[in-house]
């Protein structure tokens, strides 16, 4: 079984809804003859994409462009790897499976995910890991990794799950957090972790800690720190270098159950 490789036949001009990839198909012929909309007309998938391979549980999209929305939306038990950029709602409300993106994502990537893991080896737009457009639910569970920077209003109302941002994060990040763990290695924008109730955040940005948390100066033992997927993502080196962290708890709005950790560098 070879993974299915989809490649656009022609350059596209209009936005295209790629959520059809998340359906479960019996075989590759069902996928390639699936009818989808492009512009105001309908096409079979094979008319727009060249298709190779036969393992419909493993999909690779080549030369993706940012007009392709909803890749991996409500994805269930399928792995998709994307080379190139993607449009809005990448992996929105995903249930399980794995999404890997070698490129940038527009807004609402990984918003409201309920499981599975998403790796973005580029930048990601606003509302990354945030609330979905309509509901009041952020990341419910799952794992999100972003190598680059993420936009504003990201990781809002997170309930469970783990997030690692290697780059910078925009304004209003991590608001209304309920639980879960977030690591942010870059700089943090304005208004951080407002309304946080519980949860754990690791950051290097001293400014943030100063503004939003009170120190209790307790040393935190790193061995308690757990991540299921961590070894794939972050080189062990970084973690070994920072054996000690300073633990802060609470902020002006919270009930002292949340924690913010500062890497002691």
């Amino acid at each position: 079984m070879n993974p299915v490789i989809l490649k656009l036949k022609k350059k596209i001009k209009y936005r295209i809804d790629m959520s059809f990839l998340s359906n479960s198909y019996k075989d590759i012929s069902r996928l390639s003859s699936q009818i989808i909309s492009y512009g105001n007309k309908q096409f079979k998938v094979k008319e727009l994409f060249s298709i190779k391979g036969n393992d419909i549980k493993n999909i690779i999209i080549q030369s993706s462009v940012d007009l392709m929305d909803n890749i991996g939306k409500e994805l269930n038990n399928i792995n998709i790897t994307v080379h190139g950029n993607v449009g809005y709602s990448f992996g929105e409300q995903m249930l399980s499976g794995k999404l890997i993106l070698y490129g940038n994502a527009l807004d609402y990537a990984a918003s409201g995910i309920k499981g599975g893991s998403i790796f973005i080896y580029g930048n990601s737009g606003d509302y990354t890991g945030g609330k979905t457009n309509h509901g009041n639910v952020g990341i419910v569970d799952g794992f999100l990794y972003v190598k680059g920077n993420v936009g504003n209003n990201s990781i809002e109302r997170m309930r469970r799950g783990n997030v690692i941002i290697e780059g910078n994060i925009g304004d209003y990040a991590c608001n209304d957090m309920l639980s879960g763990t977030i690591i942010i290695k870059g700089k943090i924008g304005k208004i951080f972790a407002e309304g946080i109730k519980r949860g754990t955040i690791f950051t290097k940005d001293k400014k943030v800690v100063k503004e939003y948390a009170r120190s209790n100066d307790a040393e935190y033992n790193f061995t308690k720190f757990y991540f299921k997927e961590i070894s794939n993502v972050i080189s062990k080196k970084i973690f070994l270098e920072n054996k000690n962290l300073i633990r802060y708890y609470g902020n002006t709005n919270s009930n002292n159950l949340s924690e913010v950790f500062l890497f002691k560098l």
Binding site: I35, G87, Y88
Partner: peptide, 12 residues
């Protein structure tokens, strides 16, 4: 599209 109205605040 596809016979019914779909809504997307970003794409549309």
């Amino acid at each position: 599209m596809d016979g019914t109205f779909k809504h997307d605040r970003n794409a549309f």
